[in-house]
Computed example of a mutant assay.
Amino acid sequence: MTEILLFHHALGQTPGFLEFADRWRGAGHTVHTPDLYEGATFESVEEGVAHAEGIGFGEIIRRGTAAAASLPERIVYAGVSLGVLPAQSLAQRRPGARGALLLESAVPPESFGGPWPAGVPAQLHAMADDELAEVPVMREVAGQIDAAELFLYPGGGHLFTDRGTKAYDEAATTLLLRRTLDFLDRVG
């Protein structure tokens, strides 16, 4: 099975985020979920983003890089929303990535120093009308990766995979899980 380094969203390591990780674990994958917030969790995206801004996005990426240091290079990097920052940074900069799962966000590859690395597949997932996910940027990123799949789900909810949020969508989450598990089977 595949080893995954999954980074949390702006709300922190919420029970819904951890439950989502457990669904990948339940399929037999090893999932590491480092806490980039050192125990803090938030009720709203606005509060979580304000906390992340206080830490600094560069520090969030540094903490993610530090979390990867003791792990093998041949892993999949995954992130949900804010967690895409360290996940994508690692997928682009750390040699040996098996792939990337970018959920509800993406950053232009040049933000991390250049084109997406050849041979590193990616899946991107978001709700089609989610303004926070910046779907146009996600489309652009997917277009720059040879082995990319972009999946857009009906609706506009942000953090739709976290059961504890108002945006939670079981049908979309179930489909996302099926698609990501297929991806993990292919790259593992």
Rank of each mutant, 00 (worst) to 15 (best):
T2E: 09
T2N: 11
E3L: 08
E3S: 13
I4F: 02
L5H: 06
L6W: 06
H8N: 10
L11E: 10
Q13C: 15
T14V: 12
P15L: 06
G16C: 09
F17M: 04
F20D: 02
D22G: 15
D22A: 13
D22C: 09
W24Q: 06
A27T: 10
T30H: 14
V31T: 01
P34M: 11
P34D: 08
L36K: 00
Y37D: 04
Y37S: 08
E38I: 08
E38Q: 15
E38H: 15
G39D: 07
T41I: 12
T41C: 10
E46K: 15
A52K: 01
A52N: 01
A52R: 02
G56Y: 05
F57V: 09
E59R: 12
E59L: 11
E59W: 08
I60W: 05
I60T: 05
R63S: 07
G64P: 06
A68H: 04
A68L: 04
S70V: 09
E73N: 13
I75S: 01
I75E: 04
V76P: 03
A78D: 04
G83C: 07
G83E: 01
P86Q: 03
Q88E: 12
A91I: 04
P95W: 13
G96T: 09
A97L: 05
R98G: 03
L102R: 03
L103W: 07
L103H: 07
E104N: 02
S105G: 15
S105R: 14
V107M: 13
E110L: 08
F112E: 12
G113I: 09
G113R: 10
G114L: 10
W116Y: 09
G119D: 05
V120F: 00
V120H: 07
A126Q: 01
A128P: 04
D130K: 00
A133H: 00
V137N: 00
E140T: 15
A147Y: 12
A148D: 07
L150S: 06
L152T: 00
L152M: 06
L152E: 02
Y153E: 05
P154N: 04
P154V: 02
G155C: 05
D162Q: 09
R163Y: 01
R163W: 02
G164M: 13
G164R: 13
A167L: 07
Y168T: 00
D169V: 07
A171G: 12
A171Y: 09
A172M: 03
A172W: 03
T174Y: 06
L175Y: 04
L175F: 07
R178V: 11
R178L: 11
R178N: 13
R179G: 00
R179S: 02
T180V: 14
D182A: 15
D182R: 14
F183M: 05
F183S: 05
R186M: 09
